Computed example of a mutant assay.
Amino acid sequence: MDPGIICFQHCGPKIFCFSLPDSCPVCEKALDNANFSLLPFRVPYPFVQASQYPCAVVIKPTTGDFMNDYFNSKDLHVGVTTSKGTIVEFDKNGLRHHASLQWGQCLLLDRAPGPWRDHWDATLRSVCAEDCWSPEDYRENSHNCYSFVLKFLVDLGYGSLSRAAKSRTHFCEEFIIPRTTSAGKYISLYRKLKKNGIYVDRTKMD
């Protein structure tokens, strides 16, 4: 759930908080009727609920959630959604189709537009029907969630997403790292606010 981080500037540095304080934490002047150099705005929340994004590729931490438990980009789990928003994933329990709340805070890697829905579902059904997604087939380091999703994307033939899927390294570099890096900044900010209530960004701007 979006915690509602607010950003504003009053007398200099950017200030982040969950609710606007009565006075500026830098100069201590009252903020009612203040002249803001940057008006208060809500920082965009980077996470989505997978079931609300049909025909999408999504990632989440293997355990827990991004905001409280995420520390390492190597510990991520990837899945896809059908045109109805059903989550399809492959893990140690085998291939699963569900609408789990565990995917309520994930990152959207990419999604296909409406005209692709029939082809998306047909390709997904075809890949799921292959006899290599049982719990016994699962291997943590060599035949895992990435194996399933990348196989599906290659068979799908959907532009740059499918081209990148031919290499796990390329896929991670092009689709996962940029999104987790951006989300990591939000997570870091959230944790600072959770600990201190207000965060003053004194980073010098060139």
Rank of each mutant, 00 (worst) to 15 (best):
D201P: 05
S134M: 05
H77E: 03
R163F: 06
G85Q: 05
Y190P: 01
Y186R: 02
N93R: 12
E174Q: 15
E130Q: 15
H77I: 05
N93W: 01
E89S: 14
L193N: 04
G157I: 07
D155F: 03
R117D: 07
N144T: 03
D201E: 15
P178M: 13
E173F: 05
Q102W: 01
E174V: 14
I177G: 00
L101M: 05
R117T: 13
L161R: 07
L161C: 11
K84W: 00
V88D: 02
H98D: 14
C172F: 12
T123A: 14
R202F: 07
H98C: 13
K192N: 09
G104D: 14
H119D: 13
H77T: 06
L109G: 11
A165S: 10
G157L: 06
W133H: 00
R111T: 12
R168G: 09
I87A: 07
F152D: 04
D91Y: 02
G94P: 05
K192F: 13
S142K: 04
S126D: 13
W133V: 00
A164D: 14
P115A: 11
K195H: 05
I187Y: 04
A122I: 09
Y146L: 01
V200D: 11
A122K: 13
Y158H: 12
L95A: 01
K195S: 11
R179S: 07
G79E: 02
A112V: 09
T82R: 08
H170W: 00
A165K: 03
H119E: 14
D131T: 07
A122R: 14
G85I: 06
D121V: 08
V200P: 04
L161N: 03
Y158I: 06
T82K: 04
P178Q: 11
D201A: 10
H77F: 10
V149H: 07
R96Q: 14
L108K: 11
D131G: 01
L107M: 11
V78P: 02
G157R: 05
A112P: 10
I177F: 14
C128K: 06
R202G: 05
R96W: 00
I187N: 05
K92H: 04
L150A: 02
V80N: 08
D75H: 07
G184C: 09
L95T: 03
L153V: 09
A99Y: 10
I87Y: 01
D110E: 15
Y138G: 00
T82H: 05
F90A: 00
D121W: 03
I87T: 11
E174S: 14
L161S: 11
G85L: 00
D155L: 06
A165L: 06
T181H: 13
A129Y: 01
W120H: 10
A165R: 05
H170I: 12
T169Q: 10
A164I: 04
L124G: 10
C172L: 12
V200F: 02
H170R: 13
N93V: 01
L95C: 02
R96M: 08
F90V: 00
R139F: 03
L101E: 12
L109E: 07
G94V: 04
G114K: 13
G184P: 10
F152R: 02
R179Y: 01
E130M: 15
V127I: 15
R96A: 09
G159A: 09
R125V: 06
D118A: 13
F171M: 07
G94N: 03
Y186E: 04
E130N: 10
F175R: 10
N93T: 08
I87M: 14
N141Q: 08
A122P: 00
H119G: 06
D155N: 13
I176D: 08
L95V: 02
C172M: 13
R111G: 05
